[in-house]
């Protein structure tokens, strides 16, 4: 599913969080919104699945404005991975993964086989993990479960909000590689939010640099490393350390 932001403004409590934001996300692309905390990245992400509505301007998903979508219908077509995984503590790993299909009232056998296949794909052997509860998982295992849940309904679009932000560096690197494998396999359009420039360069097909609610720069990773924009430079300096 393609996403189009057209001159989007978002004002909350009198503060302009997003200012005149325009960009597009095409099929098969991974657009990384890179920026510091408070840049408006997560707000932009939440506008896509109608968790928020723009104050002015338009966000289009699959050619239709989010204001025209039934929000529940829209969200069921979009996979969402949160930083804090958002797993339901009273449900097993298997039920968490299959929940998107459960609310669509799919047959239990289909839910179970899909959940097991995804767990295996995310390197969580189903026989070992399906009956476990989130409290017994490591940070990386929780985040894998969150990704499996986002993929379960075979959504046309993935939204990832700092999905690996809370992980230790080796696990983070491993999951970034796994994300790339999945992207190459499924080719889903993904909007990925991070404040980690190395992560952005690793996973993006295009980077959108956000600063104070505006999109300062759009570039491919190769272009980004050569960018002279001062905000881009401030991020690139971290790579040199």
């Amino acid at each position: 599913m393609e996403v189009q932001f057209r001159r989007v403004n978002f004002i909350r409590d009198g503060r302009t969080v997003l200012r005149d934001l325009s960009f597009s996300l095409r099929e098969g692309e991974t657009l990384v919104l890179l920026g510091a905390s408070g840049a408006g990245k997560t707000t932009a992400l939440r506008l896509v699945n109608a968790l928020l509505m723009p104050t002015s301007g338009e966000v289009e998903v699959a050619g239709k404005a989010t204001t025209a979508w039934d929000p529940i219908e829209l969200r069921r077509r979009i996979g969402y991975v949160m930083q804090e995984h958002g797993l339901f503590p009273h449900m097993t790993v298997q039920r968490n993964v299959g929940l998107g299909l459960e609310i669509l009232r799919r047959p239990q056998s289909q839910i179970d086989s899909r959940a097991s296949a995804l767990l295996e794909e995310l390197k969580l052997p189903a026989a070992e993990f399906r009956g476990r509860y989130p409290r017994s998982l490591s940070g990386g295992q929780k985040q894998r479960t969150g990704i499996a849940r986002a993929l379960a309904t075979d959504p046309g679009l993935l939204l990832l909000d700092e999905p690996f932000g809370a992980l230790d560096p080796p696990t983070r690197l491993e999951l970034q590689h796994q994300f790339l494998e999945l992207r190459n396999k499924y080719g889903k359009a993904s909007l990925f939010v991070t404040h980690d420039v190395a992560e952005a360069l690793r996973v993006a097909t295009r980077i959108g640099l956000m600063h104070n609610g505006t999109l300062e720069l759009e570039a491919t990773p190769a272009e980004f490393v050569r960018a002279t924009h001062p905000v881009a430079q401030s991020f690139l300096r971290y790579l040199e350390r």
């Binding site: 219908e73 829209l74 969402y80 949160m82 804090e84 958002g86 339901f88 929940l99 998107g100």
Partner: peptide, 11 residues
């Protein structure tokens, strides 16, 4: 966060 996860799943 669970409320947001539930909403985002389309519940």
């Amino acid at each position: 966060a669970l409320r947001e996860a539930g909403l985002a799943l389309g519940m």
